[in-house]
């Protein structure tokens, strides 16, 4: 019985992979220019032809968009899974521990106060901002070496509010640039191109395998301090590396798609329900679910009311925020 269930859980990973592939292919057909499956296949057949409009839409616009969305969704989800495990807190997700707010503030700062900055300054700045904000939240919520869930959530919310206020202060000085900055804050895969994919991919190829390799260490950390110590782990170092990994994943993802709200919260939770909280299954499942979630959200974003573009982050937040409230209620009751 137990073996059968374990087998079922293992089967979930290939199933999710299949799901991602199906969603990705379906997404190819959706957008301002609708294409049937036959048209998609035909366009895929002559991708090299620069005169073929369908081919160009697929290759120049939709493919990079789907890939960037999947990649960043996966990274947000992995980040959430790691943070939740290491901090041993169901509420720890990049949105809640300040990474998103820090990245957002840094983005607005670059866009509005440094208008002459080169284009790469935006992602790099966002990344730094995410790191700094997380360090702040973590230092403030740590108490005698422990980070209580509620404490982290409350301090996260407080830090986010402060960063948000700072951001508004900067926005007062802004005019036409606001729309641009705001889209970035909501999170969107709009405008993603191959260049952006190549910018994010190296980091993803470094960070995601690293997380997968470290799955046992992550498991040990998530069991709690005493277990980790009794297993002979250098606790502080291990925790620091894991946290840096989690924040790096989210910050890099922010540079690809802006802040896609709550993906880092929902995807790992769903993954935990589907598989287990053991990282060798949890991480791959989270990665896949995060990718599916963002690809679906972005497909809806461009397909719901074409040619209008809805920010994908708006759709993920629409799903994520109620779930966050539900979690808050549950965590609140537990204490």
């Amino acid at each position: 019985m137990k073996a059968a269930r374990a087998g079922l859980k293992l089967a979930i990973i290939p199933l999710l992979t299949l799901g991602l592939v199906v969603v990705g292919i379906a997404a190819l057909g959706v957008g301002a220019v609708r294409m049937s499956l036959a048209e998609v296949l035909q366009a895929l057949g002559n991708l090299g032809n620069a005169d073929d409009t369908h081919g160009r839409i697929l290759y120049d616009l939709r493919m990079p968009r789907i890939l960037v969305g999947a990649l960043c969704g996966a990274m947000f989800a992995a980040s959430g899974a790691i943070l939740q495990g290491v901090v041993r807190n169901p509420l720890a997700s990049p949105d809640i521990v300040g990474v998103a707010a820090g990245a957002g503030l840094a983005a607005v700062f670059t866009l509005i106060l440094l208008p002459q900055a080169p284009l790469w300054a935006l992602p790099v700045g966002a990344c730094l901002g995410g790191f700094l904000a997380f360090v702040l939240v973590y230092l403030l919520s740590i108490r005698t070496g422990e980070v209580l869930p509620i404490r982290l959530a409350l301090i996260g919310v407080a830090v986010e509010a402060s960063l948000d206020a700072l951001r508004r202060l900067i926005l007062v000085r802004a005019d036409d640039g606001v729309a641009q900055a705001l889209t970035f804050l909501v999170g969107t895969v709009y405008g993603a191109d191959w260049e952006r994919l190549w910018r994010v991919l190296p980091f993803a190829l470094l960070l995601i395998p690293l997380a997968l390799i470290l799955h046992q260490k992550l498991d040990v950390l998530s069991f709690g301090d005493s277990t980790a110590k009794s297993l002979g782990m250098r606790l502080e170092l291990g925790r620091l590396v894991a946290l840096l990994l989690g924040v790096a994943l989210a910050s890099v993802a922010v540079t690809g798609t802006g802040i896609l709200g709550f993906v880092g919260l929902i995807a790992p939770h769903a993954a935990r329900l589907l598989v287990s909280s053991r990282f060798h299954l949890l991480l791959p499942a989270s990665l896949l679910l995060g990718a599916i979630l963002v690809v679906v959200a972005d497909t809806l974003a461009r397909g719901l009311v074409p040619p209008l573009e809805i920010p994908a982050g708006l759709l993920t937040t629409l799903v994520g925020a109620p779930y966050f409230l539900y979690l808050m209620r549950r965590v609140g009751r537990a204490r």
């Binding site: 301002a32 220019v33 616009l61 709009y190 405008g191 074409p306 040619p307 573009e309």
Partner: peptide, 13 residues
Amino acid sequence: GSRAVPSLEAILA
């Protein structure tokens, strides 16, 4: 689409 985020697909088409 909108001025701030026009649909690139619609333009290309």
